[in-house]
């Protein structure tokens, strides 16, 4: 399904050449969060969260429902206001680096009956690069088509999005993030409500991104697959319980601290897509 790595790399390199300065490697960590606190209606959802993320790794964000996993991503992206704290992306503010960021929101966050087709949704990922007043043209279309093929959706380009299955919609969102050609990706529950085939396709895509040196943060629910999928994990429960390499951090003590007594329940409820 995802075997045309070479052509992808070429396409992505072409973009890099056209936009100088975009792909320049920096020594700073892709994401540094210090003392972050977020509150909805004066009730703190996250408090005192500080961590550094290593470059070029797959990072799982774990925690029980209501732990603030989505909120963390949204605060980093500036979608919800921060009460306190700093976020640095590649050593700079979010505003300066947003073109290096790709985002996959939760699938339920949009109305899939919107009048558009899969290719058009993927092209939306290029709007940030296009800037104001320029319309998506052939180049954007080709890139979008290529990314759709990468996620195995080449046959569904002109399919009305409401006619796609949940897993296919999720892949469209992934393709839209791919076409953003970012260095740092945030994915909010990409595995929610998808079947085993789609999950495999998504994870091999994530591994491909990792091989290209990209950093990917993924909100994840299924504890059974954490060790298989992620190099690094962040354990959240209103605060940061632990952050580090999976082998060191994903152990019983910290899990107990993150999930409390509910740890047995979590496995069976995985994939329900609630935070």
């Amino acid at each position: 399904m995802i075997n045309n790595t070479n052509t992808t790399k070429q396409a992505l390199e072409n973009i890099d050449n056209e936009l100088p300065g975009q792909g320049v490697e920096t020594a700073s960590s892709p994401l540094r969060v210090s003392n972050l606190a977020v509150a909805y209606h004066k009730k703190p959802v996250l408090s005192n969260v500080s961590f550094d993320v290593p470059e070029g790794q797959l990072i799982g964000i774990l925690g029980p429902n209501g732990a603030g996993k989505s909120t963390l991503i949204k605060a980093v992206l500036g979608l919800v206001p921060k009460m306190h704290g700093e976020v640095e992306i590649f050593g700079r503010s979010y505003r300066e680096t947003r073109r290096r960021i790709g985002y996959v929101p939760q699938r339920e966050s949009v109305d899939w009956d919107f009048p558009t087709h899969a290719l058009d949704v993927v092209m939306m990922g290029r709007y940030g690069h296009l800037g104001w007043f320029r319309r998506p043209g052939k180049k954007e279309k080709d890139l979008a088509a290529h990314c759709l093929e990468q996620v195995g959706m080449g046959d569904y380009m002109y399919r009305q999005i409401s006619q796609l299955s949940g897993g296919q919609q999720q892949r469209v969102f992934l393709a839209r993030a791919l076409v953003q050609d970012a260095d740092l990706y945030f994915m909010d529950e990409p595995f929610a409500g998808v079947d085993a085939t789609t999950e495999k396709a998504i994870i091999s895509l994530l591994e491909q991104l990792k091989r290209q040196g990209k950093t990917v943060l993924v909100v994840h629910h299924d504890l059974a697959t954490v060790e298989e999928y992620f190099d690094h994990v962040l354990l959240l429960n209103g605060r940061l319980v632990a952050a580090g390499p999976t082998s060191e951090v994903f152990v019983e003590d910290t899990l107990q601290e993150t999930y409390g007594g509910r740890i047995a329940m979590i496995g069976s409820r995985a994939g329900k897509g609630q935070v």
């Binding site: 979608l79 947003r98 073109r99 929101p105 966050s109 939306m124 709007y127 940030g128 104001w132």
Partner: peptide, 18 residues
């Protein structure tokens, strides 16, 4: 294109910096 994106997925639009 901005109106389209804001109508379809305002969260993604904001994440993109619109």
């Amino acid at each position: 294109k901005e109106f389209k994106l804001v109508s379809f997925d305002p969260g993604f639009a904001r994440g993109m910096g619109l």
